[in-house]
Write a protein that binds this DNA or RNA. Structure first.
Lengths: 340, 340
DNA sequence: GAGGTCAGATCTAACGTTTGCGCAAGCCGG
DNA sequence: CCGGCTTGCGCAAACGTTAGATCTGACCTC
């Protein structure tokens, strides 16, 4: 690969001049003629600035790390897409990382930030990872932005408007005439689950509806959790006529369980979930959902990191725009007559 | 961040000694006492080797690029997962890139390889991207491995065993007693579509079945393509009783179209697809599929790149182990009586 | 005791880039 | 015609790391 030196030799000038011209140094005083010769030589040699040399000198890599607990998640892909787009528009590249049992968060951070591989990173913690070792985040050399999580003493996070999302879902069921509405939520330790719970309770309270004992399960965000939750709910008396599921994956499991238990959806039980994804379109019946803006969150997360790096701005973001959006499909309907 | 110099000062030795100890230089002659002092000092200062310095000196980044046309694809996630695991096990990090209209392949390669950001890369071309500018791949400084694609004069690719995958799918239908079996395939220009076609034709021929005119559509791999294909097939007379769909996304679309057109699956039409993904589990009816090993492909692709970098081995891989695997769900059945 | 070997450690150059500083030449006003 | 300013460019140091070459004693051999 051609270096600055090669270009300089071919153009008959010094390395410094080449550097100044090619990196558009503002205070560079170079004659038009020389500038042209340099640009020409650079093109002929297909010069590309060497990443390592530049990073070493400037202590900047123009790389943002995105570290997720699970890459194989439909929700992660939108997020990645958004992050990638935003990064690229600002001339940054994305480094993808994963944190799990084999490489705990602290390890990944040490590697990416400690070794100076990234200028900043977006980090999503796995559900249930305690805020324990997270204090290390604070004194790193590069900014870390947390997804769907805040941490005392740490500024820099991006979250979706989960409260509104859950509220919209609940309101949809209320407007259809349901009164016995249950919630299938994530683990109590989950930040998002707490917020979705708030949205659900707020909507119920506003409509003057009560939440009977046992109507709120908090088993987790995965398909088996949704199945287990449905089994539990249907033992209650009176059983709910509708359920707000806090996560699309759990809803898919719940729907499968309903089919198996011969509970007709939506005739006997309406189901709505928070999070839309293309899987929701392809369940049977197609799942009514509240679309959360993961793509926007990805963009916002990278923007947050960049604002921190380039302007020193500290910020906790909540994605309010675009707002969560109700996508009505076929898993919700008016409650069965007997209960009206 | 602490540098070698800092560690050296604290341990009271020279920088070179620190470097040799911490990077486990084989020919290093350092006394046990000094070694201990250095290691201790390094730990106290939380020393981490600076990535840029190391990369500049050694012309190695320990980073592998993975460039895909579309990150938001269920199949990409398994692939990424596999690539990530393999890379990590070898001490490499993964850089994720996307190639599309905004940043064409040549641009991405120039950025990643030309600037020395990666030591090698795995590249999946978008369907329909011609082999045109791809010649540039050959003379890059770092190895490029193509996914599901070969290019004349370029060695270094990893592909799934599409022929066998399609053959297994077709055989499953044949064993159920079907005789009028259609294929819904990808674009003729697609490398994988060509290979899946071969598998389908081979199985049909082996069973002594013919492929009537119009029984083979080649519209593409997306859901709308699957819908269009079904509409076309059902105008034929006699209509097929079963269909092999070359891709799960198209199959999902086809299934939705069938539901809309009130074509009962599998009673009137059996549907099987190549590619399994969790979406296939959640269609209605759940989709019988041939599971292709994307995770394994991700691992193999990275291994291929690494073998090239570290051992200079050139290789075209086809993932034969584990083999494509038939996952029987509920979208296939014996043909309707009238046609037997 | 001179010459040689060897372990243990340091010196130094180099990777490619950026940037503060210096220097020469040209131009201006006084 | 001289001091001061501007323009155009080169010199050289620095970023953190690695590795070949070199230095310094101590020890051994004859």
């Amino acid at each position: 690969m051609a270096t600055l030196g090669d270009v300089a030799a071919r153009a008959g000038v010094s390395i410094s001049s080449v550097s100044r011209v090619l990196s558009n140094h503002p205070a560079a005083r170079i004659s038009e003629a020389t500038r042209r010769r340099i640009v020409e030589a650079a093109e002929e040699l297909r010069y590309r600035p060497n990443f390592a040399g530049r990073a070493l000198k400037s202590a900047r890599t123009q790389v943002i790390g995105l570290v997720l607990p699970d890459l194989t998640n439909a929700l992660s892909t939108d997020l990645m897409h958004g992050a990638e787009d935003e990064a690229r528009e600002h001339g940054y590249t994305m480094l993808l990382g994963r944190s799990d049992a084999l490489s705990p968060v602290s390890e990944v951070i040490a590697r990416l930030i400690g070794e100076g591989r990234v200028d900043g990173m977006v980090l999503q913690l796995a559900d249930g990872v305690p805020a324990a070792g997270i204090g290390d985040l604070l004194d790193t050399a590069a900014p870390v932005v947390l997804l769907n999580e805040t941490h005392p003493g740490h500024v820099g996070s991006v979250a979706l408007d989960d409260v509104t999302g859950a509220r919209i879902a609940t309101q949809h069921l209320i407007e259809l005439g349901h009164e016995r509405i249950a919630m299938v939520n994530g683990l109590p330790s989950s930040f998002t689950a707490q917020r979705r719970r708030t949205g659900y309770r707020t909507a119920m309270k506003a409509a003057g509806l009560r939440v009977p004992r046992g109507y709120e399960t908090r088993l987790g965000y995965f398909a088996p959790d949704g199945r287990a939750a449905l089994r539990r709910l249907m033992t209650l008396s009176p059983a709910p006529t509708a359920v707000v599921v806090a996560n699309v994956n759990a809803a898919v499991g719940l729907l499968a369980e309903a089919r198996q238990a011969r509970i007709a959806v939506p005739r006997r039980l309406s189901v709505i979930c928070v999070h839309d994804s293309w899987t929701a379109e392809n369940t049977w019946p197609p799942l009514t959902a509240v679309q959360m803006q993961f793509y926007a969150m990805g963009r916002a997360a990278v923007r947050n990191v960049l604002d921190r790096i380039e302007n020193g701005v500290l910020r906790d973001d909540v994605i309010l725009d675009p707002p969560p959006q109700l996508i009505v499909r076929n898993s919700t309907a008016r409650p069965p007559r007997a209960t009206r």
